[in-house]
Design a protein around this nucleic acid. Sequence first.
RNA 1: GCCGAUGUAGCUCAGCUGGUAGAGCAGCUGAUUUGUAAUCAGCUGGUCGGCGGUUCGAAUCCGUCCAUCGGCUCCA
Length: 497
Amino acid sequence: MINITLPDSSVRQYPEGVTGVEIAKSISEGLARNVLSIQVNDEIWDATRSISSDSKIKLLTWSDPEGKATMWHSSAHLMAEAIELLYPGVKFGIGPDIENGFYYDIDFGNYPISSDDFPKIEKKILELAKEKQNFLRKDVAKTEAIGYFTGKGDEYKVELLQGLEDGQITFYESGKFTDLCRGPHIPDTSFIKAIKLLSIAGAYWRGDEKRKQLTRIYGISFPKQKELDEFLVFLEEAKKRDHRKLGKELELFAFSQKVGLGLPLWLPRGAALRERLEMFLKKVQKKAGYEQVMCPHIGNVELYKTSGHYQKYGESSFRPITTPVEGEEFFLKPMNCPHHCEIYKVKPRSYRDLPVRLAEFGTVYRYEQSGELHGLTRVRGFTQDDAHIFCTPEQVKDEFKGVMDIVMLIFKALNFKDFIVQISLRDPENKEKYIGSDENWEKAERAIREVAEERGLNTVIELGEAAFYGPKMDFMVNGFHGEGCPWPEMAARHYPG
RNA sequence: GCCGAUGUAGCUCAGCUGGUAGAGCAGCUGAUUUGUAAUCAGCUGGUCGGCGGUUCGAAUCCGUCCAUCGGCUCCA
């Protein structure tokens, strides 16, 4: 017998080899019908997998995010099975669950495929779901695994396998479909009662734009048809609140092909709104000890070479403007940072003058690839409420705190309640990508983390997402459609010179 | 930039396999004065995204470019 600790801390005894489904049955039949996967200690397992030692468990259902993830991951497998039956010979990339559903990256070879094919695929998936296929987990040796996918001609899987360690490779088999997969999966496919394929898109293999583009099919599934219907209504509602639609209807902003793509025109009502917001923000900044400054819209290329931005972003800026006689090169200002540094350097400063806080509503222009543009959230010309604080290393933490308090104050005023805070640190494997000393990086990273903790913020830490000059803290406000939308960002910076 | 889709009146859209454009709402004119989006009648309004091609004839087929949308990549 082994001891199983349930989430309420009660301990029950079960025979060795007991499965999540069996534990669920011993609690209630209803739970057993709904259990999708099981958390065993810190891992998520198949609910049908045997547990052989004392464990702390949590049965996961549709109401748990992990349960949903299991369902969606299994749905990706099922979709792949359906596609393989309908389009023999296609090759598979990866097929994970995501925040809202799942996708699978597939090389369709010469099959033409479009969203018109979705109904056919959906129908096949539901057919297969009804077959109550089990997901069989198998440990496979690396050579055997490579052999299987080489034989099948799935070169993408072979490539994935080459990066994996022998002894940790598992296959999952459901119906006629076998996939390289860590799992876990739902007990059987009949849990999937409703499925909707949402969109089709190109996606580079392994996220590398130099490699082949596979066809990615997005979908979502539910344990009840009613939930799918509700989700579709939710999507419709989100469409109604799209800022692009509202901006047009309320006459806040517009775009003109003649002016250029990604260059918004602010209409009288939008400009009025923006003015009010700016006045409010400037008032807040003044109170917090910021001084307003102003800079021209162009700057000598040398300025950006000194700051390091040129080397990093020169290619993704508009081409330089050249003076007709002298041939000097100017950039359309892509960021305010180096200008503010020049303002700081206008006169000699004593440490007693610090911190110096400079703020500006600075308009910047960046070359964004045409396919990246999106309403007002991704444009080629925009105004940043930008500030730079010059302070001693000892003051970093307090200054960060101050900035965070301002952000919180503004969020409260604007009624932004639903947001997550992302702390972006440097990639410890690639330190040469960043400028500045290790010591200062560590100091800055520590300050950010400590402040976030002291303020009790719900944070996510991402390694390797820092800017080249310093760690960042981003506030992602969740819009109505639940998508993370980056809003304020603050960063500690090191400047050479 | 890449993959896929879309592009018809101010807005939302219809127009099957080619025969020179339609509806609702908005707008205008008039009637109605009725309790709350949106009462009635009439009218105005479109080089069917641009350019080229096939055809006796193209919104419809082909090519190309542009823009938009969903993703990918990128995001100082």
